[in-house]
Simulated assay, not measured.
Amino acid sequence: MEDSKKGSDAPDSLDGLLDNFSDAAEKNEVSLDDLMDMVGRRSFGSLLLLAGLLTLAPVIGDVPGVPTVIGVFVFLIAGQLLFGMEHFWLPRWLLNRTVKGSHLEKAVQWMRSPARFVDKMLKARYSAFVNGTAKHVIAAVCIAVAMSMPVMEFVPFSANAAGVVLTAFGLALIARDGLVALVAFVITGLSYFLIALSM
């Protein structure tokens, strides 16, 4: 998987990440700071994956205000990547945001089967779409998605599309899978087209 910059304790599979989330869910409240420790604080792909999964999870992403908070999170880390920062900084008020442990555990169980399927499909290919300039293009697209997320709270199911895009880009960067990145670009374009039609 991705990145020599990834934390040494970060899992090397999506299913492994869910195992870590399940352990954390034993607490009454789990902070964003805790979740960042689990995915690796210096890996852009891992942090995008975290944002995508939280947005997709029905018991978490459907809570009013959560897509906006995730949008701020993505905007900050993607913006810092574009400016060449190697360590991602986030404000304490954002890191202190929490999710109930019971909700996190429900989200983990919901994601188990898809995670195992996705883990089998990922592999390093078409690396030009996830390296160098392509990584910065992905960051720019994620900034556009992040800026749209507050509006998406008022358009049914559009936040779920954002979650799919962020998850796909995160997985693409972690696994160096350019095909998944291409799929994420296509989903992004289709999502904005459908949102425009619905407004």
Rank of each mutant, 00 (worst) to 15 (best):
F88C: 02
W110I: 10
L94H: 07
V118R: 09
A134V: 03
T55N: 00
L179I: 14
G40C: 06
F73R: 05
A107H: 08
L197H: 01
H87Q: 14
T167I: 06
R116L: 11
F83I: 01
Y192N: 00
F83R: 00
R42E: 12
D33P: 10
T55P: 04
F73M: 03
D19K: 15
M147R: 14
L17D: 01
S22R: 09
V74Y: 00
M149H: 02
F73K: 05
V63I: 08
V141S: 13
D12A: 07
N131Q: 09
M149L: 10
V186T: 13
D62I: 15
S13R: 09
S102K: 08
K123Q: 02
R125Y: 05
L56M: 03
L54P: 13
F117M: 15
G79R: 03
N160W: 06
D19R: 15
G7I: 00
G65Y: 06
N96E: 15
A57C: 07
L82Q: 04
K100E: 06
K100M: 07
V130T: 11
T133E: 08
S158F: 09
L53G: 10
D12I: 12
S113M: 08
D9H: 04
A51R: 04
Q80Y: 04
M121P: 15
V165G: 09
A25K: 14
E86I: 10
F44G: 01
V69D: 13
I70R: 00
G101P: 10
P64V: 14
N131T: 05
V141H: 08
G40I: 04
A128K: 08
M199D: 14
V30S: 05
S148N: 09
D37W: 00
L90Y: 04
A184N: 15
P64T: 03
T68Y: 03
P156H: 12
L50P: 01
L35F: 06
P58W: 12
L82T: 00
A57T: 05
L179E: 13
D19P: 14
R41D: 05
R112D: 06
G163W: 11
K5M: 11
A140V: 00
A144C: 02
A161P: 05
I195E: 13
K120L: 08
V63L: 02
L95G: 03
A10T: 06
E26D: 08
L82E: 03
K5L: 12
W93P: 05
G84F: 02
V141Y: 14
F73W: 03
P67R: 13
I195V: 04
S8T: 07
S43C: 15
A57P: 11
V145S: 08
E26Y: 04
F185C: 09
K5T: 02
R92Y: 13
I60V: 15
W110A: 10
P91V: 09
M111L: 14
V155G: 07
A175P: 01
G170L: 01
S148T: 01
L76V: 03
T68D: 12
R176N: 11
S8C: 06
K106V: 06
Y192M: 02
V164T: 15
F129L: 11
